[in-house]
Design a protein around this nucleic acid. Sequence first.
RNA 1: GGUGCCAUCGCCAAGUGGUAAGGCCGCAGCCUGCAAAGCUGCUAUCCCCAGUUCAAAUCUGGGUGGCACCUCCA
Length: 466
Amino acid sequence: MKIYDSQQKTKREFIPQEKNNVTLYVCGPTVYDDAHLGHAKSALVFDLLCRVLRANGYEVTYARNITDIDDKIIKKAQQENKSIKEITEFYADAYNKEMSKLGVIRPDIEPKATESLDAMIEFIQKLIDANHAYKTEDGDVYFDTSSDNEYLSLSKRVQEEDDKKQRVESSLQKRNSADFALWKSVKDGSVTFDSPYGKGRPGWHLECSAMIEKHLAKPEFKFSVDIHGGGADLLFPHHENEAAQTRCATDHTLAAYWMHNGFVNIDGEKMSKSLGNSFFLKDALREYDGEVLRFYLLSTHYRSNFNFSTVDLELSKKRLDKVYRLKKRLFGLSEANDASEFKDALLEALSDDMNISLALSLIEEMISSANERLDCAGKHKELKKETISNLAFIEDVLGFGVKNPYEYFQSGVDAATKEKLSELISKRDVAKKEKDFATSDKLRDEILAFGVNIMDTPQGTFWEKI
RNA sequence: GGUGCCAUCGCCAAGUGGUAAGGCCGCAGCCUGCAAAGCUGCUAUCCCCAGUUCAAAUCUGGGUGGCACCUCCA
């Protein structure tokens, strides 16, 4: 397996520290609002990574945190006159429900900041003891970036002197402009936690380092985790700061491989509330099947920026439909689990830094070839077995085609409509048998008026929602 | 301003030194009572210029255009 490491800026062979076990940590959401397409993209990318690693025979321990301490959460709670807990639980639950509609497998560990305060305070103390952090008169604790000679080695950023001066002047208590808060003193009595440094709240960067050390790191290894992932925007400062903290507080280097997913843009622009073009996942899920969104968001390489458009989303639906039509064609037949050239090729493509485009082209070639051979007369027992097995592999590794094909094509249609459609189709069948094509065409128009397509097959007439 | 990424058919998008995957759309055909679905065939020399090489979309240099990050952010 090959992975592009965003620290070394190169694609390299993935070798976990422990022969068959892989630890993966991904920065999850801050739960103060509904998840947007960007959150979905990130969750999907690392879900795919996890599946591909597992398909390669690795045991993966996958952790994704939930940030439930944050100024934005407090603000939201005040706005809605609710408790912090109500807000964080509501949005964490919504996040998980929506991700599950996208076929995202739950991580093995989902640590929360509120449950990791002890670990964070312990972490701060280690940094203070090692002279990598300092307290200020205000009661804040900052990480001293000048004490870490490897600071900025992850993002390869160059610090500007002018900028440095300016910042220092504006914040007299910070020793260096780049120093970031490990503990923020809060005196307004809003939401605070106790610490040896007084009441306050932990800094955002701290939680990931502390939780990784607590849940995933093993003393015998050099790196705390094999792979650390997150959105491209997190590279700096979030991941840079995490890496610095861990380097200075523990015997570990934070991650052996860093992976960053590209951004979701809308109409070529970054999604943001101020631009008014945020696209919430819950809105997209009202219009489209979760699996279509999964296919769409995964259909371009994870490192590329992704430009959302409904035209392309429709295209993804068509592509996924093809998987389901083949599945429908073979529906009810029992599944085998044999090796095939197709499976090997698919896994190889995905194992090359998740080359999804190549993987999808292999799938589409497999579908065409299977359909072509099934079109020819014959029993095709072996072919059917192999094709079903191939489809099952696609379900496992990519999470495409996991539903019952009939339900997939008919989702969002109520029972009464279904009954009506089946009635019309029966009538049309009778008309067709009697070669009364005027009536059968009229009935077809009535059927199409429900927003569905119909297709006549040797097994009978089926309809699909458009 | 600093740092980095990108530019391949009408659209989406692989390939990164050996002569352009795949999908959508379009056209022609098979199948069909007609459709739909499915299948077959057709459709690009890779932003521009110069260079390296037996060989470049792929490497180097220079343009042009687009994007991202620079301490809120997936």
